[in-house]
């Protein structure tokens, strides 16, 4: 009996910690989503917040935009990460230096990195606009973040810049885990470099790549500060993803109830997405795993 008591006492701090940090905010968010809470008043409104979201075309567009943002950005990160890892994995002189040079976008605080990108994208002083004018692509200054479509893709580029190093390093680590003997055996059998990459490297790193894609997808989905610093979700909502929208409603307009409803929708969407994803992960593991 006293042993049970002691065991509970030992895990109590952890339980309290999780309750305060995770459970309480979660429960509170769900509760708020059924109210019209503002700064100093709140009353129960049932499903009204959710009903509003369902009817809103703007909100549907935001969901679509968010998934488009996520899928495009993650695909580019994975592709660049794969190419980068393959290059860093090759036996070239000075590869240690290259490996270090991959890190800065990830190491630099995002806010500082984004201010750098703000200057790059600046129409009058930015190097991108300037260079494009110099080689004759543009006739005059171009403000990358001022137009709906260019702002969205410019934000994607900045997001890719931040997210690619980690994907690269994870894939590089996975590649280095592949036994050298496999490549030698394939070489003895006459497999070309490309064939070895396709038939050995890719399948061998596939489980890591798939897990990495899920992590990267969640981070990209929830990526806030990059968009906020660059465009604050504009112009005219062109870069407003779900997380930015939630912030604008809840913190910008003090509509905590509606903001909470959005947050709950995000949780549900991400959970559903992860569920589908894990289903495919299982399939990938069966195909490329060792069992």
């Amino acid at each position: 009996m006293s042993q049970t008591w002691f065991a509970w006492a030992l895990i109590l701090p952890a339980i309290l910690f999780i309750a305060i940090i995770v459970a309480w905010p979660l429960v509170e968010t769900v509760r708020l989503s059924f109210t019209n809470a503002k700064i100093n008043s709140e009353s129960y409104v049932g499903f009204e917040n959710y009903a509003k979201l369902m009817e809103s075309r703007k909100f549907q567009q935001t969901i679509i935009r968010t998934f488009y943002w996520m899928i495009l950005s993650v695909s580019i990160k994975l592709l660049l990460g794969l190419i980068g890892a393959a290059l860093l994995n090759a036996t070239v002189p000075g590869k240690a230096l290259f490996r270090v040079l991959v890190m800065p976008p990830w190491v630099i605080p995002i806010a500082i990195g984004m201010i750098g990108w703000l200057w790059l994208y600046n129409g009058h002083f930015g190097i991108l606009s300037g260079a494009a004018q110099f080689i004759g692509i543009l006739d005059g200054p171009f403000e990358f973040l001022a137009y709906k479509s260019s702002a969205f893709y410019s934000a994607i580029v900045a997001d890719v810049w931040v997210g690619t190093p980690m994907v690269t390093l994870f894939l590089l680590a996975a590649m280095q885990g592949v036994s050298k003997d496999l490549y030698e055996a394939a070489w003895v059998d006459g497999a070309s470099r490309w064939y070895r990459f396709r038939r050995i490297t890719i399948p061998q790193i596939m489980p890591v790549m798939v897990s990495m894609a899920l992590l990267s997808a969640i981070w990209t989905f929830n990526s806030f500060e990059i968009i906020w610093i660059l465009t604050e979700g504009g112009p005219r909502g062109a870069t407003t993803t779900l997380i930015v929208d939630t912030y604008k409603v809840a913190i910008g307009n003090f509509k905590f109830g509606q903001g909470a409803a959005r947050a709950v929708v995000i949780v549900i969407l991400l959970a559903a997405f992860s569920g589908v994803y894990l289903f495919f992960l299982e399939k990938v593991n069966r195909r490329y795993g060792t069992k």
Binding site: A185, A186, A191, R199, I200, P203, Q204, G289
Partner: peptide, 27 residues
């Protein structure tokens, strides 16, 4: 020539059939 490695160097993600077939697939 063909070579058998100390570690066997089998492709863990391929079946026995595909492992044996590997050099022929390359050809």
């Amino acid at each position: 020539i063909s070579m058998v490695f100390q570690s066997y160097a089998l492709y863990p993600h391929l079946t026995v059939y595909e492992n044996i077939a590997f050099p022929l697939r390359v050809q």
